[in-house]
Design a protein around this nucleic acid. Sequence first.
DNA 1: GAGTTTACGTCAGTCTTGTTGACATTCCAA
DNA 2: TTGGAATGTCAACAAGACTGACGTAAACTC
Lengths: 170, 170
Amino acid sequence: MTDGRTAQVHSGENLLFLTDEQLRQGIEAMFFAYRGFTADPDRILADMSYGRAHHRAIHFINRAPGTTVNNLLAILGVTKQSLNRVLRTLIADGLVESRVGNLDKRERHLYLTEAGHELEAQLSDAQRARMRAAFRDAGPEAVAGFRRVLEAMMDADMRRAYTRLRDTVG
Amino acid sequence: MTDGRTAQVHSGENLLFLTDEQLRQGIEAMFFAYRGFTADPDRILADMSYGRAHHRAIHFINRAPGTTVNNLLAILGVTKQSLNRVLRTLIADGLVESRVGNLDKRERHLYLTEAGHELEAQLSDAQRARMRAAFRDAGPEAVAGFRRVLEAMMDADMRRAYTRLRDTVG
DNA sequence: GAGTTTACGTCAGTCTTGTTGACATTCCAA
DNA sequence: TTGGAATGTCAACAAGACTGACGTAAACTC
């Protein structure tokens, strides 16, 4: 199971990129890159009394305006109690609006307010700037590969959520 | 700043992969993939009373045996107090050994015990299995691109830590 | 129409993991 | 040799995740 040479057994194809050493490098790259990925928004959020959880909520409400609480729960993969704490502060601070559903009055549909959009843009710009720099440095071929590997690394549920989101026309 | 068309201004090269939409997809892929990346070890750790922090410590102690606390701090990017709590439990549970330095008695050098190595292997196997599947699905070209983008996404400090680690001969 | 299910909110309590602040020990250099 | 810097430990606290229990309102089902 931990044998670094299994990959080389398959003769014919070159599977050297599947050695344990290559995998470990991939794992560590993922760890360090994720820190870079969140670093810039984290800095902005630290000044207000918000955290990464607020960022995630804001991102996906902006992404899918009018989403219900349940929907957001599924995307974020947290409990409603956890999300609720975050939403409560965002609503209290006037960044998010919660409207009772027309068809189903049990549902709450979530929207960003003007102020919410401003913060979203600020966080988004910071995160995109780094992603853009990384994409540009690496080039289009690399970006395509990056996406392919990430998608293969998701759980089935996540991939479904992600695909649904990706194909949503704003 | 938020103009999705900036990329298209540069005529000649095809920079369509740098549109805001592409960047957003990259950001979301990163978010979902990181969940998948940590999901399997997290499940194992949940059974014991350990968390992701313990996993990270164990990983890097295994990676660089004899590392000092300060060294580990720099790699993990947390405060020494935070790391210390984790280390204390790992040492108490007999997974990690802390030896006073020979040259500098202020330093503590960290090593995995037999039991520590066992847990490390268990966590590693789980995480590598998913990474291996993702790598195999995506293919070697994609993996190279994946690595290139991740490295471009790190901070300079992280890249230094990562490169140093990567080039370390166990 | 009564009973069940669904969607949402909330209170209370716990756990992990991050933070600061205070402190002991050891090393080193002026 | 003494004062500052470096290394690591202890204590207290905060954010954000979790579970469990409960309440309300609306929708669904028989």
